[in-house]
Each structure stands twice: as structure tokens, then as C-alpha cells.
Nucleic acid binder design. Structure first.
Lengths: 136, 136
DNA sequence: GACCTACTTGACACTAAATATCAATAGAAT
DNA sequence: ATTCTATTGATATTTAGTGTCAAGTAGGTC
């Protein structure tokens, strides 16, 4: 979170008390969260500000958007702060990041053969994580 | 759409007038649509029915959900009716389906190495389609 | 063809997620 | 300390979708 505040400043954004509060709250949550959940834990911060801050943090790759299989959305602090994909457990809801250059290459290959100029992409994997798989 | 009605019947769903109307409307739209747009073109059909029917058609792989980069969602008649991925043009909004076993394999490989039991996955490619790329 | 019954519909209320507005507030540069 | 502009909070509004339930109808049966 310290380097998150730095990243905010470096990008020209103001380091305000509400933004610090949102960053702290995100740092202390250890699971994917909804904005509502985050907002409930921050009764002194306006709901709109929480939405705005999370949107900002997404742009800075500090937080990432996690689309669930049912169409709902959660957010999570990005571990890597860089491009990655997700393994999303349908049992416990845990989200694991991974990167794979060969997966990215396969995606680029498909774009190229369709004469499509790729700007970005997403890949989400849904299933059961190791511990939920072995525990059930 | 004829085989869509067959697929409805085969699965035990009733072939009702509203469902036919929704199927016809989808067949006549040649671009990704929102439920609102679809519903506007069907003033005699209840909004809830349009939502319900599109949800049903998704389950039957007749229609597919297309998540856009900004988090909004559109729907499109599935050409293949089977598992596939999307090339989504950020200029004209066109959506092209593609399948690639080697892409699927790369995804499965990642799940396996994380001891993750893969149930499903999605991959969306965003950028500029061939005609928008060459026209601009 | 009439009948039955479960599936489906339509109207409407409601929820959830997010954005728009705008006066008031407060970073941070000087 | 002052100033200027980004940011905030409160609230209204939008968008996308679901829940409820009485009324309607598809399609199998006699």
C-alpha cells in the first residue's frame, strides 16, 4: 500500500484522506470484495467516493476486476500489479492470479490470423481450487 | 431459428408466441444487442419475458453473452452454438466468434499446474477488427 | 374438439451496481 | 497563508436484472 500511495502521487492524483482509507481497507481484506462490502467497512467515506477510488485503482493496476461466472463482479488487490489472468474457485470464491506467456501468445496468434489488431484481452478460469478439490 | 425452435422443444420447453417473437427479433438483428434494445423492438412482449427468454437461450447456446471491456454486457446470436471465444471490436462493436483447441489447451495446462479443477473458462479479445483497422 | 394442468406470461415492485450533479471541502504548489 | 483546482459527500438517477403472483396458454389426454 505504501507503493500504492506512491503510484497515486506519481500519476498526479492527490493523496487524500478518503483515498488512504480505501487503500487501507483494501489492504486489510484478504478476499475478493464487492464495493458494497468495502463501503460498509468505511462508514465515514461516501459510497460514490469508494466507487470512484476503486475505479481509479483499477486504472493504476492496484486493484483488479474479477468477473464471476454468474455475471456478478468482485474486486481484488492485484498481487503482481501487472497483466494476468484468474483462477476463480466456485466453492470458496478464492481468486488466484497467474501469467503465462504461451497463453498470451496463443491469444495473439488468434488475433493475428483474424487480421484483428489486439489491444487487450481477458481470460478467466472457473472451477475448484486445490484445497476445495481435496477437501470435499 | 428453425433449429432454435427445435432445440427449445427437444429440451422440453414450450414453444410459445412470445418465445417465437424473441427468436425472430434476435434473428433479424445483425449486431450485438442489449436486452433493452431487444425489448424496445418487441412492445407487445413483457420486459421480464424478454430477459427470461434470453437467459433460456443462453443456456441452450443459441445466444451468447458478450462482456465488453467497460464492464457492460451485450448479447449475440451464437453462430456455432458451441464453446468459443470472442474478438470484440472497440470501434464498430462487431463480435466475431472463434475456437482454438490450442488456446483451450493452454488454459487447461495452467489449471493443471495450479492443481485447479477446471469447470469452464472464458476468453475475450478486445481491439480493432480488420475493416475498422484498414478504414481508419 | 374439449379438458386439464403445469409451464409461461405480463405487470409491477424491487434490488444491485454504478454514474451524474453540484455545492462544499481540502490537497499541494507558491 | 493564500489560492486554485481536484476531490468529496449527499442525493438523485440510471442501468441491468430479479421476485411475485394472478391470469393465460401450450400441448398431452380422452
Amino acid at each position: 500500500m505504501t507503493d500504492s500511495t506512491e503510484r497515486l502521487e506519481d500519476t498526479g492524483y492527490r493523496l487524500t484522506a478518503p483515498r488512504r482509507a480505501v487503500l487501507d481497507a483494501i489492504a486489510s481484506i484478504n478476499r475478493p470484495f464487492t464495493i458494497e462490502e468495502l463501503s460498509e467497512g468505511l462508514p465515514n467515506i461516501g459510497r460514490a467516493t469508494v466507487f470512484r477510488t476503486v475505479k481509479l485503482l483499477q486504472e493504476l493496476d492496484i486493484v483488479c476486476r474479477v468477473p464471476l461466472e454468474d455475471g456478478s463482479v468482485r474486486y481484488e488487490r492485484s498481487r503482481s500489479g501487472r497483466h494476468h489472468h484468474h483462477l476463480i474457485c466456485s466453492v470458496c470464491g478464492s481468486v488466484t492470479e497467474f501469467s503465462d506467456p504461451s497463453l498470451d501468445a496463443a491469444i495473439e496468434q488468434n488475433a493475428t490470423s483474424a487480421s484483428f489488431e489486439l489491444e487487450s484481452h481477458s481470460a478467466e478460469l472457473y472451477g475448484r481450487c486445490d484445497s476445495c478439490r481435496t477437501t470435499s
